[in-house]
Design a protein around this nucleic acid. Structure first.
Lengths: 68, 68
DNA sequence: GAATAATGTAATGTATATGTTACAATAAGG
DNA sequence: CCTTATTGTAACATATACATTACATTATTC
């Protein structure tokens, strides 16, 4: 499983463009993060949480291999 | 308030060197993150969580300005 | 079915997270 | 004291997060 940015964004009724503006990055960056194609910094993760009203664990937690 | 990496590391009874080895980075990187001098990537945050038995929210959550 | 909105993605450039090497400072224990 | 473990930090190199520009694709909606 990847991150849940797209799910959180849709729940917050935001387009990639709107989320990008709220978090201070470009639309492309949001798109690549949703696609799991790179590894965002903590500050950006926090901005995404603030913009969507979620916690880090809700959007970005990934259980360690072999655990749930 | 900064992150709580140092607190979590001490609770797990690890030195910076040991945490670095468990997370696959150098001791210097751990030191700088504890000092708040830079902005780790999500993957490294997750490795730190796994190594210390904590969640993202426990170590890295920072309430948005004006909120608790 | 043309116009527009939303998204995917590629090429290239820049900023910065992280590595490497090295040295200093402090504390703990012999 | 001297040694060793632990931590802070500086200079320089490298990898990669992110920006910029641009174009293609897939819905909508008129």
């Amino acid at each position: 499983m990847k991150n849940k940015v797209k799910f959180a964004r849709l729940q917050a009724e935001l387009t990639q463009q709107q989320l990008a503006e709220k978090t201070g990055v470009t639309r492309q960056t949001i798109s690549l993060i949703e696609k799991g194609k790179y590894n965002p910094t903590l500050n950006l993760c926090l901005e995404i949480c603030y913009a969507t009203g979620r916690s880090l664990d809700e959007i970005f937690w990934i259980p360690r291999e072999g655990e749930e």
